[in-house]
């Protein structure tokens, strides 16, 4: 207790860190930047949505056109997330647990939607299913509507969101290897038993993580959907499309009210993502005693 304390009381208490002033400055820059670019826009969205009071807000949301857009968005998200869940699981399983020719090609193919502009993704479907497209005339003669209808919107959304689940799972499954599966098989488990009792429980947090991001993108997608939707009011407008239309028509309350729903989705996604990441960091372990 009688040791000299002078070296402890110097202004720079820890030689390994920056001086206090520098630290404060850096933190301030980060906070200001985040406030201007993230917090402020969010506040503006909600402020505008509620600027004529709560009554006007709910009236805007219960408008038939708004309800139709919400319904369509949920429907499209449900279709694309469930299909991409199956696709992502199968693709990740094949890539992580087996060796085959063309594996690297498949991996880069999965990443394709990330590197292509969403507008191009939408345009591809116009070229395939449009009146002048490859399959357009045939589809028309059989009275099947893909473009400017729900199937086209779902297809474009599926295309844009299909990397999410696979990308979340491939590194996780590669890291886990195939030994647990081999152990299960040698203990007499069938293929399905091995998948449901060993593989799936080991990746469940990764699956949820992928689904979450996939869902957020599916509900928020604008570019690709805009190209294939046809903007038929009350029929083929998703929430992001309707936000734009209403804004262009100077219906700010309605526009921001729907935007606020998307903003809330983003906030919920963020919280859920943080929660899932913590589980993923814990190495997929159940919380033991």
């Amino acid at each position: 207790m009688n040791q000299p304390q002078s070296y402890l009381s110097s202004a720079r208490s820890d030689l390994r860190s920056e001086p206090r002033l520098v630290r404060a400055l850096i933190i301030a820059i980060a906070v200001i930047f985040l406030t201007v670019f993230v917090v402020l826009p969010l506040v503006v969205v909600f402020a505008q949505a509620f600027s004529k009071g709560v009554g006007a807000y709910f009236a805007a949301l219960s408008d038939p056109e708004a309800l139709s857009a919400i319904r369509l968005t949920l429907w499209v998200a449900a279709i694309s997330v469930s299909l991409n869940l199956i696709f992502g699981l199968v693709a990740a399983w094949a890539i992580a647990k087996f060796d085959f020719r063309g594996k690297t090609f498949l991996i880069s193919l999965i990443d394709l939607p990330f590197s292509v502009s969403p507008v191009i993704s939408g345009l591809v479907f116009v070229l395939l299913f449009g009146a002048q497209g490859y399959w357009g005339p045939w589809l028309q003669s059989h009275n099947v509507h893909v473009l400017f209808a729900v199937p086209g919107i779902a297809l474009a959304t599926i295309f844009v969101t299909f990397p999410f689940v696979a990308r979340a799972l491939i590194p996780l499954m590669q890291e886990q290897g195939t030994q647990e599966e081999e152990a299960a098989v040698s203990l007499g488990a069938s293929g399905l038993q091995t998948f449901f009792r060993v593989t799936l429980p080991n990746i469940k947090w990764g699956v949820l993580y992928g689904v979450l991001l996939c869902n957020a993108r599916a509900m928020g997608e604008f570019g690709a959907v805009s190209v294939v939707s046809g903007h038929i009011r009350g029929e083929t407008n998703t929430m992001p499309l309707l936000v734009e239309i209403l804004y262009n028509e100077y219906q700010f309350i309605s526009s921001f009210a729907i935007a606020s729903l998307l903003a809330m989705l983003a906030l919920i996604t963020l919280v859920a993502k943080t929660f899932l990441e913590r589980h993923l960091d814990e190495g997929q372990l159940p919380r033991g005693n």
Binding site: E180, A183, V198, N202, Q284, L285
Partner: peptide
Amino acid sequence: QVGFVFQHYALFRH
């Protein structure tokens, strides 16, 4: 009906 023991145990972690 073969019992296999792996070098890195391969216990089911969950």
